[in-house]
Simulated scan of single mutants.
Amino acid sequence: MGQSKAEHVIRVGVVDDEALVRSGFSLILGAADDIEVVATASGGDAVGTIRRERPDVVLLDIRMPDVDGLTVLHQLRMMPNAPVVAMLTTFDTDEYVLTALHSGAAGFLLKDTEPAQLAHLVRTLAAGGVVLSPKASRALLHSHPGAEAAADEEAARVKLLTPPRA
């Protein structure tokens, strides 16, 4: 039977103080058969809207004028059956990346993420994965002393375990 939506639809909430960002993300994600934006809110309305609509994934602006995104993240993480939350920012060197991840965020996305990648990233989050935009990943590595050296060391260990090809 010809259904227009996929069997399991990922319910998404978008929280941002800018209406244009909320609308843009809603339009992009709404084009996917397996994703439905069920909630949009600005900072002050975020927690109540998310509690009421119960999305699976929330894309949450980290910097909003009326309420801090980290505060909203903390409140959402306290909910029973809390949604998966990925933080949104316009800054690729945002100092809140580590704080957000340590506070339970499952990802960190730049608002200029390619539209074609956005649905894939939401699916990854809904499946229990962690997503970091490439620019945010670089900022995270550079802001954490020794992280690049540790990554290089891990890569060297993997090479030792991998037998050479004949």
Rank of each mutant, 00 (worst) to 15 (best):
A39V: 05
D61R: 00
L160S: 09
A156V: 02
L132Q: 03
A116W: 03
R63Q: 08
G44F: 04
R157H: 12
D66L: 00
A151L: 14
V57A: 04
A32I: 00
R157N: 05
L161I: 02
S133E: 06
G48Q: 15
V47D: 08
V67Y: 07
R77K: 15
A105C: 05
S143D: 10
R123S: 03
V9M: 10
V130K: 13
I35L: 05
V97A: 12
E36Y: 02
G43W: 00
G13D: 04
V37W: 11
E148H: 10
M87C: 01
T89D: 13
G13N: 01
L27G: 04
Q75E: 15
H8E: 13
S23P: 00
L110F: 02
V122T: 07
V122F: 04
A149S: 15
V38S: 10
R77E: 08
A126P: 07
V84M: 01
A166P: 08
R123D: 07
L59M: 09
D94L: 01
G48D: 09
T99W: 00
A119S: 12
S4G: 08
L98P: 01
P163A: 15
D16Y: 05
R123E: 04
L132C: 06
A147N: 11
S103I: 00
L160I: 06
D68S: 13
A39P: 01
L160K: 09
G104A: 09
A6L: 06
H142P: 00
S23H: 13
L76N: 04
I35Q: 01
F25Y: 10
